[in-house]
């Protein structure tokens, strides 16, 4: 496959940045998208040019490290996959492919396609955990009965890998699908009840402070989420928040 890549290049956080064209040839349709970028970078290095910086780690759709806004969609045109799981067979010979970083004021660009997603970490620190006494007589989590339906929903929410595709896809750069999933995975379980009120209030407060936009229920996040996190989690977070606000 012969392609034209239009890639966002930005030297550092303070640089203005711009889209730069890179023609690339002899790309196998069986390559992953990141392997295609590896080939490009190899060519750039051989020519003495600066390689394109992009995030990646496990390359098997688990870590949530890879990002990229490809042809106007987070993680590209395929569904239920991260960029590392996206294959070049999704594109046609001769295509022009736009490759941009995830855009949000709360996700500032560090370099080229790499963005700072530590806002998600700070939201997690604000309440995305349960406190468990590990003094030696910890009760096995499986000893506490959990309704099967609730357990399934909690596990589904917990599959969120925190990649930020929801923020990138949302026209408002809202993080509510991420926060909704993190609130839900504990709100559905007995282990999460002790800190439920503080958790949702603190996580939403932190989310607002980070500068994410407000959800207008377009549903783009759910469609683009590589793990298929449902909008039900946002509705649950809204309920939890209103309940907690009335208590607090």
């Amino acid at each position: 496959m012969n392609l034209t890549l239009k890639i966002w290049r930005q030297k550092n956080a303070n640089d203005k940045g711009k889209m730069v064209d890179y023609p690339i040839s002899d790309i196998s349709p069986d390559m992953s998208f990141l392997e295609m970028l590896d080939v490009l970078n190899e060519q750039l290095i051989n020519k003495g040019e600066e390689p394109v910086a992009f995030d990646h780690d496990c390359r098997e759709g688990i870590c949530g490290m890879c990002s990229l806004y490809i042809n106007g969609e987070a993680h590209g045109p395929d569904r239920g996959v991260t960029t590392c799981q996206l294959h070049m067979r999704m594109f046609n010979d001769g295509d022009t492919i736009y490759i941009e970083p995830f855009r949000a004021a709360a996700f500032p660009v560090i370099k080229d396609l790499v963005v700072d997603r530590s806002a998600f970490d700070r939201i997690q620190h604000a309440g995305g955990f349960i406190s468990v006494n590990t003094s030696g007589n910890t009760i096995d989590a499986n000893a506490i009965p959990v309704n099967k339906h609730d357990a399934d929903d909690a596990f589904a929410a917990a599959t969120c890998i925190g990649c930020g595709a929801c923020v990138a896809s949302c026209k408002n750069s809202s993080a509510m699908l991420f926060v909704g999933a993190k609130v839900s995975q504990f709100a559905l379980l007995p282990q999460g009840q002790v800190e439920a009120t503080d958790r949702v209030l603190n996580m939403v407060k932190q989310m607002d402070e980070e500068g994410f936009g407000n959800c207008t229920n377009t549903g783009a996040c759910e469609v683009e989420c590589p793990k298929g996190i449902s909008l039900e989690n946002i509705a649950r977070m809204n309920r939890e928040y209103l309940k907690a606000s009335l208590k607090g």
Binding site: K6, W8, G17, M19, Y69, N71, G72, E73, P77, Y98, E100, R103, A104, A105, A106, S169, K171, N172, S173, S174, G211, F212, G213, N214, T216, N217, T218, G219, A220, V223, E224
Partner: peptide, 23 residues
Amino acid sequence: RNKKARNISYAKNNGGANSTWMS
């Protein structure tokens, strides 16, 4: 507020792929 949450627009954005025009 929502406009402020994205300070740089995408060069290419395919909103129609994941949401309705109305939304």
